[in-house]
Each structure stands twice: as structure tokens, then as C-alpha cells.
């Protein structure tokens, strides 16, 4: 039997000795699409960041593809999509250059980009519908298009597991559509997905399992919960901003 893609067992994760998650366990098997849900500040982003080794795990264990995370080296099997592009660097970079970074995990630091790399970058740009913007500086793109750039970067490496941190927060409708179709194609190709979300929106039909993080623990693991309250109202337009005033920023250490 193949080992699970992600296996977190009794993990305690915290910043500066202050635990954010306590005794948390989560297993993701191949071809699953798992959504990690929860309120802002619940620790849902911390959970996936701990799985990737971006925050240290105090107690418990994390394994990726059956290898303890500390000894895991096959990073080309994982595509990571952060919440957003950093504050924007001082030097311009084209969409294609950013997406090409996604090939580094596969080809290594020293080998120059070859034809296979260029083709993978072109395919990834096509998958998110940004081929016509490939030569433009990333800073001139809308928030949603920047998010699609980051997804293309993750896809370019040809990963088996895609880990996304709030991919649809503050993303316009057209980008959400492009985004869910790219994700659907990835799943149909046999890929595994772990994504953090505050709201599922158009991604809902893709999710095979939902995990709800609440107050540093896992409160629910199973079917996707029905939206409650005014969020369930079909006419509800989700217009309040999520990301900018997010108190979570205080403890994710970004």
C-alpha cells in the first residue's frame, strides 16, 4: 500500500513557545481534495505551513509521502501556492520569470533551463489562462491574476501534491473561474490537493473532504459542512474584505 501523501500525527505547533495548534492529527491520501476550514486566527494556515516545514513542529510528527518531513528531499512532488506574492520586490519580474521559478525544484540549482522546462512553463501559463500576459511585469497584474501566476508557478513543476493557502481570498470572479478549472484539471490528472480556505465559493464541488480547525484543534473531519447563517443565503454577496485586516497576520509571522 502506498503511504499517505501527508501524515500529521499528534503535532503541537506554536510561535515563540505559544502553541497555536495542540495535538493535531491529519492524514491526506493520494487523489483526495481536502479543504482546511476555520475562522481567521483558528490556526488553519499554521497547520499547512507546519506540514511543509515552514513553521517548526514542537511535539508529534509530520511525514510527506511516507518520509519524515525533516528528511524529505523530493520537493518537486509538492507545489506550494502561498497566500499572496510578497510585498512586491524592488526589481520588476515578468509573469513567465516567476512561473519559471517553479521548475527549480525539478531541475536543481545549477542546470540551466531546457526545452522541457520552457514547455512546462508554457503549459502552466495556459492552464491558468495567462499566456497573453506572460511577458508583462507581475506588478501590473490584478490581485486575482497574481494569484493565478502563483498557481501556474506551482503547476509548472509537475507536482503530485498541491498545497494552497487561501487561494481565493480577495480574487475577482474571472480569476476564481480560471482557478477552479485549473484545480479541476489537476485533480482529474490524479493530483492530491490540500487547501486552506475561509470560504469555498466555486471550489465547493471539487472538495472531497473538509477539516475544520477551531481553537487550535480539529473540530470536524469529514463531509463538507453546509454553510450556516447569512453566508448560506444564495443571494449573499461576499463583499467584506478578508485578507487585509486579517488578525491572523499577527501570528503567521509574515
Amino acid at each position: 500500500m502506498t503511504p499517505p501523501v501527508i501524515e500529521i500525527a499528534h503535532a503541537t505547533v506554536g510561535y515563540d513557545g505559544r502553541p497555536v495548534l495542540r495535538d493535531v492529527s491529519l492524514t491526506v491520501t493520494a487523489a483526495e481534495v481536502v479543504a482546511v476550514l476555520g475562522a481567521n486566527g483558528s490556526g488553519k494556515s499554521t497547520l499547512v505551513r507546519a506540514a511543509l516545514g515552514l513553521v517548526p513542529v514542537g511535539a508529534g510528527s509530520v511525514a510527506l509521502f511516507g518520509t519524515p518531513q525533516r528528511r524529505f528531499r523530493q520537493w518537486h512532488r509538492i507545489g506550494y501556492v502561498p497566500q499572496r506574492l510578497g510585498a512586491g520586490s524592488g526589481v520588476p519580474a515578468t509573469v513567465r520569470e516567476v512561473v519559471a521559478s517553479g521548475r527549480l525544484a525539478r531541475r536543481g540549482v545549477l542546470r540551466p533551463a531546457g526545452r522541457a522546462d520552457r514547455e512546462a512553463v508554457a503549459a502552466a501559463l495556459d492552464a491558468v489562462g495567462l499566456t497573453d500576459r506572460a511577458g508583462d511585469p507581475v506588478s501590473t497584474l490584478s490581485g486575482g491574476q497574481q494569484q493565478r501566476t502563483l498557481i501556474a508557478r506551482a503547476l509548472a513543476g509537475g507536482p503530485e501534491l498541491l498545497v494552497l493557502d487561501e487561494p481565493t481570498a480577495g480574487v475577482d470572479a474571472a480569476s476564481q473561474e480560471a482557478f477552479s478549472s485549473a484545480l479541476r484539471a489537476f485533480r482529474d490528472g490524479g493530483g492530491t490537493v490540500l487547501l486552506v480556505a475561509h470560504e469555498l465559493g466555486p471550489l465547493r464541488p471539487l472538495i472531497s473532504r473538509a477539516v475544520v480547525v477551531h481553537q487550535g484543534g480539529i473540530a470536524h473531519d469529514g463531509a463538507v459542512p453546509e454553510p450556516a447563517g447569512h453566508h448560506a443565503d444564495p443571494g449573499h454577496e461576499h463583499v467584506h474584505p478578508h485578507c487585509d485586516e486579517e488578525p491572523a497576520r499577527l501570528w503567521t509571522g509574515i
Partner: peptide, 23 residues
Amino acid sequence: LVLRPALFAVCHDEEYARVSGLP
């Protein structure tokens, strides 16, 4: 010049570079 793609990746998005397994 030789390390440009890797150095670009690290300076552009350090966390992503870490998850890419770059040194």
C-alpha cells in the same frame, strides 16, 4: 549569472524557495 534563476527565486519569495527544496 549561473545561479540567476535560483538567486532570483530566493530573493523573490524565500518561503516558496524553501518549499522548492532550494538550499
